[in-house]
Amino acid sequence: MKIHAFIPLATLIARLSIAGTFISAALPKIKAPTEFAVSIEGFELIHSPLVHWVALLLPWLELIIGIGLIVPMIRKVSGALIAGLLILFIGLHASAWQRGLDISCGCFGTEAEPTTNYSLLILRNLLLLAATCFVLFRDLKANRATSKIAI
């Protein structure tokens, strides 16, 4: 069997994994925005009142684009936004690591671990970014094929 036969299955697994990660990251932060705001402040890049806006809007954006990645109508833009957010998160974690900040990631809301393992976190986000790019590429390719058929 050719490797091409597995690509749709790999795309589906990648899509569901990314969506699941973003949805499960968003829900605890929606339930406890104050704790998430504390985590954001820990990065020492933005402060009140901007931090309250980010703590309010970012979890909802994560939830919508997480669900959006499995909804055909908005999955292309959702994929692009997820990729953009992952690049932002990688940059933020690299910056905190470089500054030697001893903070909690806040990625999944209130976390038990007091500090962040930056290398593991950046690696995880790089893997998610690679998976997102793969899914996005497949969606764009499928879109082009549909357009050609329509023509």
Binding site: I30, L56, L57, W60, L61, L63, I64, I65, G68, M73, I74, V77, S78, L81
Partner: peptide
């Protein structure tokens, strides 16, 4: 649509 849904959630 994504922005509107995010604002509704917020």
């Amino acid at each position: 649509l994504i922005c509107v849904l995010t604002l509704l959630g917020a």
